[in-house]
Computed example of a mutant assay.
Amino acid sequence: MAQVTLSDVARTAGVSLATTSRVLNGSSRVPGKAISQRVMQAAEKLGYVPNASAQALARSSSGLLGVVIQDLEDPYFSAVAAGFQEAAGGQGQLVLMAQTSRDADLTIVALGGLNAQRVDGVLMVGSLDLSAEQRAVFSDQLARVEARGGQVVTVGQSYGIGRTVYPADRDGGRAIGQAAIAGGYQRFALLDDVTRAPSAVDRAAGFAAAIEESGGRIEYHVPAPVTAAGGRVAGDALVRHLEEHPGGPMCFFAMTDAVAVAAMGRALHAGIRVPDELGVVGFDGIAAGRDIAPSLTTFDLPLRDIGRRAFELVHHPEDADLPETWEVHEDTITIPGRLWQGGSTSPPPT
């Protein structure tokens, strides 16, 4: 017989994992009496056995904060992490950081390690295509942080615990598609993220919608992971496609700046003229995109500021100072971006 988990009790009681953990693990942040009774009744009905170690840890504090990111080499993640670290350092807080290489199992190990260190708050950056079982484990680990009185902030994906910060992925994808059309492109290519990360799915959907609304279509879906290595694979594939299917300039939406920079490098090395034969668009607004030639057209996000504000939400959520342009709805925060016109795509006519 499978062991009864916190997730099972939460589902039966009809409350969140965080609430269930606070009731059963003895946190000082206990909900109302009626809810507590409902949780206790559900636990008794299912035969849930509380973990004595978890109960002891529920009331402890370490003074440490945890950050979990997917790829340190990707400037998107490192910029957000740097903003968080800078803000934490200014408050004398020590940060434990884990890179998980976009691997769900490694992320679970990282969260378990942070809980073993009794971190007082966690920032998770990035989205993953998870099974229901993996999502339940993620949520269970994050609920343990909240049960100790800590705060959880996730960027790009919600696990039902804490607050979630969403970049405007779908709107940004749509803005990129509209800009490509305005720039005169009639042929379009799109990175098809083989890992199916939710943020990439949303960006692709926005881009495709803009193209379809204009009467166009995506000519070429390039299968590759959303990594710099995937960008090199995509760049080589685009070169082959253009050689085999001539017929006018094509605009490629690379899904992230890291992918775009790598793909554009491979295309330029092969003699493809950017933006005349191939336009390349990223998403994120990393600093390196401004420094290359041609500079990268992208959907610009305030990456370091996301990290700094995430620290405020983790460290002192009641006094967090969020920009007025950030849309707050209950535990969800949506961050707008803006299209930045670089030299990697043809600009719209003036």
Rank of each mutant, 00 (worst) to 15 (best):
F299T: 01
R22M: 09
I292M: 12
A56P: 04
F311A: 04
I35S: 09
V226I: 14
G90F: 00
W340V: 15
I181T: 11
Q3P: 06
G173S: 04
H269Q: 14
P249D: 08
T154H: 13
H245W: 00
A79D: 10
I272S: 01
E133S: 10
V261M: 14
D305H: 13
Q3W: 03
G173P: 06
V80I: 15
G150E: 13
F252P: 02
G112R: 11
T325Y: 00
K33I: 05
M250W: 02
L190T: 03
A258Y: 01
A210P: 04
Y159D: 06
Q93W: 06
V239N: 09
A288Q: 15
R148L: 02
S27G: 15
P347W: 05
E133C: 00
G247N: 12
V259G: 07
D120G: 08
H241D: 09
D169N: 15
V280R: 10
A209F: 10
A147E: 05
A34W: 03
T154E: 11
K33F: 03
W326V: 08
S62G: 07
Y76K: 08
A270C: 02
L142C: 10
A228Y: 05
Q99N: 15
P246N: 07
A87I: 09
A210C: 06
A237Y: 05
V194H: 02
R309P: 00
V153G: 10
F311I: 02
G172Q: 06
A10P: 07
V226G: 11
S158Q: 11
L24M: 05
R232L: 04
G206C: 12
A136P: 00
T350G: 13
G89C: 11
F207M: 12
A54M: 08
E212L: 12
A228E: 14
D202N: 13
Q134C: 07
Q55E: 09
G150D: 10
L268W: 03
A88Q: 05
L339W: 01
A168Q: 10
P31C: 02
E312A: 12
G184P: 09
A79Q: 10
F77V: 12
L114F: 12
A52R: 15
Q178R: 14
D171I: 12
G177N: 08
G177V: 04
T334N: 11
A81M: 08
F188Y: 13
Q157T: 13
A43Y: 07
A260D: 03
V194M: 10
